[in-house]
Structure formats: structure tokens, C-alpha cells
Design a protein around this nucleic acid. Sequence first.
DNA 1: GTAGGGTTAG
Length: 677
Amino acid sequence: MDAIKKLHGRLIVTGLYRDAYSVSRVLSSYAASSSCFNDARLVLHQIEQPNKFIWNSMIRGVSQTDQPREAFSYYNQMRPTGSEQNHLTFIFIIKACERIRQIEAGKQIHGHIIKLGFVSHLFVSNALIHVYGFCGAPELARKVFDETPERDLVSWNSLICGYGQNNRMRDVLDLFEAMQGESIIADAVTLVKVLLACSHLEEWNAMDKSVEYIRVNNVTMDIYLGNTLIDICGRRGRIELARRTFDEMPERNVVSYNTLIMSYTKAGDLAAAVNLFNEMPERDVISWSSIIDGYSQAKQFVRALELFYEMMVADVQPDEITLASVLSACAHLGALDVGRGVHDYIRKNSIKADIYIGNSLINMYCKSACIAEAVEVFEEMKEKDTVTWTSLIAGMAVNGFANTALEFFGKMLGAGIKPSGPTFIAVLHACTHNGLVDEGVQYFNSMREYHIEPDMKHYGCVVDLLSRSGKLNEAYDFIEKLLVPPDPVVWRILLSACKQNGNVEMAEIVTKELLKTDPTNSGNYVLMSTTYAGADRWDESMKLMTGHKNQQAVYLDEKVLTSLGCERYQWPLAPKANRCCMHNSQAFDFVMNVVSVCAAVPNNNQLEFQKVKDVKLFQRNSCVNSSSCNDVKLSGLSGYMAVDMAEVSCWRTGLSSVKGYPSVIVNKERWVFAKAV
DNA sequence: GTAGGGTTAG
């Protein structure tokens, strides 16, 4: 382009700028580059009688800018100046129709083409086939295709692309068949569309045949075809075939790498994805988004955020897809500060705030207990779907706004938004946290009216609902009457309610049930043991505990303990002791209690999150029982928070279930039980 | 002097 500018300058200096040939070369080069299109406009103004070459250059050029509509203005200026359109004029103006996606414009141009006798021009009719397919009228494309006297491979491909564009996958495969009937050899372009159609229709036989076709007919495996093959192999879980395709491709580009990275993360092979990411010669926004998403899928949320920072440092602009993924990582971590930063970034950089971004923001704010901000985002959203409503209702339900949650559920139904399974989980949580037992049961019974089949999570919610209000017998009967075998989680919810209610008898019955199906889960022993402890039956409690071997040393800094609010407990630690031995699931219990204490500090988010951060530090040195964590998530026990290996998210609540909750800790010598003060 | 068809993320 510098050379063109130089040439332009010389023309002006030497007075040759009126020389039609030289000037048109300069104009054509300017026009072909969308960043220099304005220079083309200026040059055009200097030309008294632009010829068709110049008009064509302008039409082609402007179609590629963000003002493709202007192409019609140049097209309409052609005739009065005495220059006539040629076949290229039509090819270029049809591209402009495609850019603005207006079929009416295409039809109008089609009329001109017929009038001026260009329909029989192969490239022109191919362009027509393509524009009709692209603008949602594959029938019209077909009509041009059928009526045209001459066809080539591009005619077939254009028609096939039109069907593909309009999700007419079956027609794509039919046309491929028809091609073979006419002994036309397909090329890479055809095969890209055919393979995608097979993948959409999950026609694996047809797909294998198409791959065979490529081999038999020596179809060139170019970048597009290779990338497509990697993609669909990856989606189908045939990761080794995807890799082989990648390795055998004569040429690769950033899409090849991105596609294979996504195949790996989908297959759960994060290490391979990371290796590939590190090997990439260049990375675009999709590369970064894919690897960030890969870390999130592997639940490595901290690492996901680190990659996001690296992306910013590498000066790659994140888009709405990246940011939605980053917000989800923030939500998992309860990283409110980062989440707010992302929200700011979205506003300041006019990132397209689509429904995914809105939903992610709501989720992030709700997981950070910032319901007011979640509502603000909700109200700003132009379009809302089931996820939008459900996220907000769930956030309200577990953050002490149960009534508002139910009110919003009513509004959701009123707005004609279909509730989903998770919506009912949220609604049942709201009832549980508000003691609305009968209403909760009614909601549960109404699920089938919305064609939603309750699953184990819903059963868990109902058990939680009944047992939290002391209806342990009803909860037990409910479990007994289930038509499917109850998940251990469901029993465990009841068991922990027995503990809360000090109902040792039922706890023993439930534990017996639990040990039948889930004997290796240390959480079961802990719950029963602490139930005994709560009833001052220390011998039985100790026996259960020490009989279980899975012990692990964890390091507890006294300062950390104090900063965690542990002074609320009677710590049997020697004054200078800085470590103690803790059972896996006691470590879990410990975290639970501590976070509950944090959660009970009203209106002090900052304090709360500071503490949660420390809990994370603590957690890193311990082995927290992850199945217990899932139980917590499901049941909303212990102050409505969730803990798991890689995350701590803390939801504040007005209730404090801490009081009277026995905490089990241990000193160097022996297990000691301490009761909450 | 200017030409037509295809691939990746929630």
C-alpha cells in the first residue's frame, strides 16, 4: 500500500493524475483495501468520466467496508456517466447484496441481469445461486441452478452452501449424491459442507464414506477441509483421528490449532490442549477463549483467571465470549473484585452485552451475594431467557430473599418464560429457606404441568424442605416412596437434619441405609459421629471417628485460625501449637463451620470475602472431601455455602446454623470434640 | 487491467 501511495504522489507531482489508466490503477488499489477506501473516494472525485473499471473497483471495494450499502449508489451512478455494466459489475453488486443480506436487492439485480442478457454468464449465475442461498432462499438458488444452461463445480458448491446455510443438511447430502450420479468429482469445498452436514445429522456412516471419498478421489486436504475434519472428529470424541489429521495437514493456520485445542478440552485432556496452546505460532481471541474455557472446564478457575490476565498483557482484546467465560470463573471463585472489573471493562469498551454476558453477570453477582447488582443487570437486559430468570431467582433464594424469589418466579411465568428443572430447584430452595413447606410441596407437585420430570436433585430439595422444618418422619416416608433408588446424597441430607434435630434414633437408621450403598464416604461417619457428640454420647462418637483410618496432617497457623473467626470455638490447641492432625472430612467440617461464621457476619461483604480467601489458603493444605461438598451444594446446608477442592464460594444468609453445631477438631495426641459456644 | 464456492468458541 505504501508503494501505491508513492505512485499516487508521483502522479500528482508530475501532473499525470488525469491519466485515466494510471489513476484507475491507484484507485483500484485503494478501493481493494477497506482501510484505504476513503482515499479511493477522494480519487474518484477527481475523475471526470469514470469508466466501468473504476466503477467496478468502487463497487467491489465498498462492499468489503462497513458501508456495503453504498455499493448501490455507485451502481446507480454508472449509467448516467455513459459507462455500461459488464458481467463483473453484476458479480460485485451481487456480493454487496449478500453483505447487506437483503434478498429484495438481489432480486432487483437479478431482473437487471435478465434484461441485459447476462444470465447465461456462468460466473454471474453462480453468484446468483450463492446470493439466494446466503439470503435464506435456497429454492430460488435451486431455480437459477436448474435453469442455467451451463454449470460447473462452483455452481454445485454454491447451491450446496445455500442448503447448508439454511440448515437443510439432508439436501446437502442429496446434492452430493446427485453430483456423483452425474460423475462430477467433488472438491475440498464440497467436502467441507458434506462433512458438516454429516456431523449435524449424526450420520456417521455417511461421514465415514465421505472421508473415504476424500482418499479415493485424492481430494486435496487443504486448510479448510483439514480444519473441518479436525472439528468434527473432535466433536465425535475421535481425538486420535483429529490429531492425525492435524499432523498430516500440509499447511495449518490458527483455526487448525484452535479447533484441536477445543477438541482436547472437550475430551478432558487439558494437558494436551495447553501444550498445543504453548506451541502456537500466533494466537487470536478464540485461542485464548478456548484455553480459558479449558481451565474452567477442568475446574481450575484460578488458572483460568491467570490466563485471562496473560491475554490482556498479550494485548489481545477479549470479546463477549471470552468475558462470559471469565465471569463464570469469577462466579465459581466468588471473585467479586475481578467480576466487577470485568463488568466495568464491558461498559467501557462497548462489548456486545448479549444474553450470555447478562446471564454470566447475574450469576457472578448472585454467587457473590450482591443481589441488588444482579437485579440491576437483570433489568438492563433487553432479552431474557429461562437461564436469566432462574439465575436471579436462585440467587435470591439462597441469599435471604426467599419471598422476592417466589415473587419473581410468578413474574417469570407471567412473562411466558418456560421454567426448567433448575428453576424448580431455585423455587424449592426459596421455600426451604422461608419455611414454606406446603407451598414447596405444591411447587414440586406442579412440575409435571410444565413437562419437567423431577430428578434426584429435586428429591433432595424436598427432603431438605421437610427435614429442615423438623418433619423428619415425612422426609423419611418421602424417600421410602421414591420409585427410583435414592441417591446417598438424599439420605445424607436427612442424616444431617437428624443431627441438627438431635434425633439419634433416626440418624442411626439413616446411617445404616447409607452404609449399604456408600460405605467408603467418610462424610457418613462424620455426620453420625457428630450426631452422637451433639447428644453428649462421646464414647460412641469417638469410636466411629477413630475407627476410620483416612487421616491426613494439615497445617493450621494460629493466626489464620484467629483471623477466620475461630475464637468463637473452644480450640483445644496448646497455646503455641501450630499444627494439628485432622481427619479429611473434619477438615471439611472445619471449613464449613468457619465459612458459616463468615457468612453470618451481616452486611460485611468485604470481611466475608477476606475470610473466604483465607479459607482457601487453608484448604490448599488439606484434603477436603469432595463428595461431601457436592452434598452441601445440593442441600444448601450450613449457611448456604458451597465448598469444593478448587473453589470456595460463600453465600451470605440471614440465618446462622452455626450455633449448637458441634465442631470436631483434634490436637497432636488425640481426637477432641469441641462444641460451639 | 478487475471474477465465483468453504473452517473454529458460550
